[in-house]
Structures are given as C-alpha cells and as structure tokens.
Design a protein around this nucleic acid. Structure first.
Lengths: 173, 173
DNA sequence: ACCACCGGTTGTAAGTTGCAATCGGAAGTT
DNA sequence: AACTTCCGATTGCAACTTACAACCGGTGGT
C-alpha cells in the first residue's frame, strides 16, 4: 500500500504555498483531471480509447494523454499491461485516488443542488450523497478490490447499484 | 435565502454535459476560484485589497478581479457597499458558497494526507477534518450569521478556534 | 493482404494566465 | 488647497494551456 506523502513530511516545493487546499487545487484544479478520474471511478473505464470515446464531455485525445500521464506522475493512477493486447494499457486507481471518493460525493451533491444538472445524470450523485460515509466506505472497498487487487466489481455492489439507477432513469426520460 | 438552481430544474445549457461533477468542475475547477473562496471563508478577508495582499499564493490583481466577478455572476459571492468607504466593496459568501464547507474540509483533509503540505498550514485542515460534519455545521451557521446577516464572528467560534490553532503552530515553528 | 483498433503525437489556432505598470476616483493628512 | 495613500479594478504583453483535426507506427483478427 502506497504511503501518504504528507506523512513522510516532504519539504514544501520552493516558492509554493504548502496549504493543503491550495496544493490539492494545484494538482486537480483544472478542466479535466477530476472528470477523467470520475470516468475511471464511476464509469469503470480503464483504457485510453474507452475514456476517449465514452466521455460525455468529449475530451480531446491530446488532453486525455497529457492528463493521464500527469495523474500517473502524481500517483493517482498506475499503468499496467493488459494481457489481452500488447499495446493496451490498463489505468488503475491508486489508494490516493480511491480516497477522493468522499470528495467526489460532495462535488456531485453540491453540483446537483446548485447547478442546472440533468436529472438522469444527477441520480447517481444524489444516491451517493444520501448513502453517506457508510456507502462511500463500501464503494472504496469495492474500488480497492477492483483496482488494487484486480478482482471484478461485484454484481450487487455500489457501482452496480449506481449504474442501474442511472440506466433506469435514462430509459424512462 | 437564495434558491438552489437545481431545484428550479433549469435546462442544461446547450452542448454541455449536465453531470453534477462536470458542472461543478467547470465552475470551480481552475487555479484560483477555490483559493479565493478559501480566503474569504477561512481568512475572513472580504475586500479586494485584503484578498490581494494577504494571499499566501500571490494572486495577480487582474485574475482576482476576474475571479471575483465570475463568482458573483455564479452566485457564490455577493457585492455590498461598505459604509466606511464609498469605493470599498464588501464581498460576502452566499448560501451556495457556505455549503462548500464540507467540500473544503475534504479537500484540505485529502491534501494534508497525500501532498507535501507545510505543518502549520495543515493544522486547520486536520482540525476541521477531525471535527467532522458536526463541526462543519457549526462553522456554516457561523458563516451564515457573518455573511448573510452581517453579525461578527463569535470569539469562541470555529473560525476563532482554527485561527488560534494556526497561530500557535506558526509561532512555535 | 486487409482493416479496425491500440495508445498516443503533431500542427495550428484560440483562449487563458502571469506579471508589471497604470487608471480615475475617494479619503486622510498637512 | 496640495499631497499622499488607498480603493477596485484595467491595460498591454509574453508565456502557457486548451481545443480541434489530422495523423502516427505497431498490433491483432479475418
């Protein structure tokens, strides 16, 4: 299991602020980083093409490539060979990224409360918000099993529940 | 009290995604928006110069101006005349911004766990994280009193506690 | 041999950011 | 009345980032 950087007491990079909020914003505060992580986390997409094609927002391939390598460098994603295809790369969430689940939940909850979201897309966010910390922990354990240990998502897990709720909403609208 | 936009079921803007996480990232996912909100929220700075001069990260004045007006347009800040000076503008948090407190808490907690933060600056984040939802609610009520009703922060409030902890840490390091 | 798919790169144009200097008006000081 | 400081910004410019479309060499299935 990777060690939190903060615990190692690394020096604050020269000329930077060292405030936790600021450093997190410096790392994730751009148009795409969190969206890519969202697709890996909730969409279950783990390959370049998958992320490129299934992105609702239409990310450009060069931006996706640059974000993926940035997130790998930052220790939020890890690269693995895919046995099914020599060129295929399997991007997996690291523990650091998995611990962003509560943040994603809040982000989604706030957005669906204050911004003009589309109903079918905000169902997952509302479900996850209502589930609270207990549900987030279950989801994080599920992600750990899938991304750190390579086991598949269970059919009765949180991801399945969220996906099902979304699909039901999307088909009836 | 302002109404959440989501509740009004505004249409999703043409060609945009409608996903709550995406819309929130579109609004707040840049280098400065959350940092400015942090300074208003935790630093108690409510004037342009104050934000410009006391910013640890050194924001440029044109960027600050552009972010302030964007946040006002988005309904996260409101502008008020300051009786003490005709040109002075008092930027106050709205209810929407106050409800970002849990998000800020998670942001700070994640950053202080995974990024090389400076100890004295992460004390507040850790205190707020440990306080949990109960402390966040107290802090939000305090912010509502200060920003929506114009009453001063109480001397024994959450903000005072956080500031004291920071100042103690800063002086002994 | 053919062709779809793999993770990317390249070129280019448009937009955003960072930095320093500066603005006109308001208030305090002498 | 003159001078200085403070007020929320704006301007010009250079550097960087983003968006879009075309394209790359290698892989694998038919």
């Amino acid at each position: 299991m990777p060690q939190p950087v903060g615990v190692r007491r690394l020096p604050v990079p020269e000329g930077k602020s060292g405030c936790p909020i600021n450093l997190t914003v410096e790392l994730l505060g751009d148009r795409w980083s969190l969206v890519v992580l969202r697709d890996v986390m909730f969409g279950g997409h783990r390959h370049f093409r998958e992320l490129l094609t299934n992105s609702v927002e239409g990310i450009a391939s060069n931006i996706l490539a640059s974000r993926l390598s940035k997130l790998v460098d930052a220790g939020l994603l890890s690269r693995h060979d895919d046995p099914s295809h020599q060129q295929k790369i399997d991007y997996r969430l690291t523990e650091a990224a998995i611990e962003l689940v509560p943040l994603m939940a809040h982000l989604g909850a706030w957005g669906s409360r204050w911004l003009p979201t589309s109903p079918e897309l905000s169902i997952r966010a509302q479900l996850l918000a209502r589930g609270g910390p207990e549900m987030w922990e279950r989801f994080m354990d599920e992600l750990r099993a899938a991304h750190l240990e390579g086991r598949p998502h269970p059919a009765d897990g949180v991801l399945a529940e969220l996906t099902l709720a979304y699909e039901r909403a999307a088909s009836t609208s």
